[in-house]
Nucleic acid binder design. Structure first.
Lengths: 225, 225
DNA sequence: TGACACACGATTGGATCCAAAATCTAGTCC
DNA sequence: GGACTAGATTTTGGATCCAATCGTGTGTCA
């Protein structure tokens, strides 16, 4: 019912606007795993035809945010605990690569921005805001990496696990926030020093610890009737 | 001009048929990096409207086989040597994960099939056939992995580098075919023994060696008039 | 002669209409 | 009473038509 009022509100790509709108809904948990997405419904909210919605759903499918079955429509994918575990293992292996590619290209301004984001994380106590800031922090450390296939896949992995990350933090993960901050600080320091070895190690450890803590919270993955 | 006559020739998904057709063209080098894909042209060949073509192009974009720019159309992406190098590094890190997931689930029949494919590789001397068989061999070793995000990304990485793999083999890589076969044999043996450690090591080494040999052939990436 | 501007052709993006498939409901038969 | 079938509704897939945008080529003016 709410008109998006997104970034590219002007002319150009209506399908991109729809995609941005749906992406936002999914990443902020207004559409949850298992939810069905009806084309007409979205089209109505936009006052557009269903066509841009169809294209948007294809784009989101590319990002791992929706899944599509012929003649049955689009849904937000539901991942099992094991699948999320493997996606985290993928992140452990891939993101250090993006970081290594990015490190030499990050400017002093980039470093300052990361420092500022981390300060906001430490001062913050809102769940949704933390998820946004955490994403901005990590993807920010990769912003010097200009290998498109790698960027696309890293973003995809983040997107497809966002819901479970939220569920975990909401389920008591905040108590471990000091660990997150310590890890972020060590990582950021290595980034500023452009120490690839340390940065890679801290990043992999950070993701790995999160994966293990997630695996101790099977309730996050319990399907509800 | 040739009608696809694909698997799903019946009713259902015309866009999927178009996607399969274009995928085949790209993987077999009838569409090369930099080539533009005109929607109307493809639609005409299929006797369909442009709409399924548009959806097909979105699907292929998801697989990394095409890239799309607003109001400018679709092209087959052209990767720089450095980009291909990074994609190979991604493969080095990701594919062992798929293999580990797959190993315990592979049946004796699967092993027999892999053995047979490898025999065909050793008996073969055709370039295109080698690429098909090599793909079947490696993806076959991952066929026990049922983590969709991982499968999708591995396939994507293979797709986006297929052209350069072909160019490398065509440019004299056949002389090193015995190395490929030795590596495949060691890998296959580890797979049959369900030795995850060895399998992972051999696979990573196999991809790494290919990456390094590719980097010694910059001609593969030189743009031709 | 060079550069800017305008207009035309080519190509993609979006809307509306129609067809096909799937799901849901109700009714009937065993 | 339960289960299967047939029809109606909902939803997606595809075709055709129209609008917007980009690239290009030509012409004119400084």
């Amino acid at each position: 019912m709410t008109i998006p009022a997104d970034e590219m509100n002007g002319v150009g790509a209506a399908s991109a606007r729809v995609a941005a709108y749906l992406r936002d809904l999914i990443l902020h948990d207004h559409l949850k795993p298992g939810d069905r997405i009806r084309q007409e419904e979205i089209a109505e909210q936009f006052g557009s035809s269903r066509l841009p919605v169809r294209e948007a759903l294809r784009m989101l499918e590319a990002e791992g945010l929706t899944e599509h079955e012929a003649n049955k429509g689009a849904r937000v994918p539901r991942l099992s605990m094991h699948e999320v575990d493997v996606v985290y293992r993928m992140r452990e292996r891939l993101e250090p690569l993006a970081l290594i590619e990015s490190l030499p290209a990050l400017s002093d301004d980039d470093h300052a921005h990361l420092e500022q984001v981390q300060q906001q994380i430490e001062a913050n106590d809102d769940l949704d805001r933390f998820l946004d800031l955490d994403r901005e922090f990590h993807l920010g450390t990769y912003s010097g990496c200009h290998i498109e296939p790698l960027n696309a896949i890293v973003t995809r992995l983040w997107n497809s696990t966002q819901h479970y990350r939220r569920a975990y933090v909401a389920l008591g993960g905040q108590a471990r926030m000091w660990v997150v901050n310590a890890e972020h600080r060590l990582l950021l320091d290595a980034v500023v020093r452009r120490d690839a070895t340390d940065a890679e190690r801290f990043l992999e450890g950070h993701i790995r610890r999160t994966r293990i803590e997630l695996s101790h919270h099977p309730a996050v993955f319990g399907e509800e009737p």
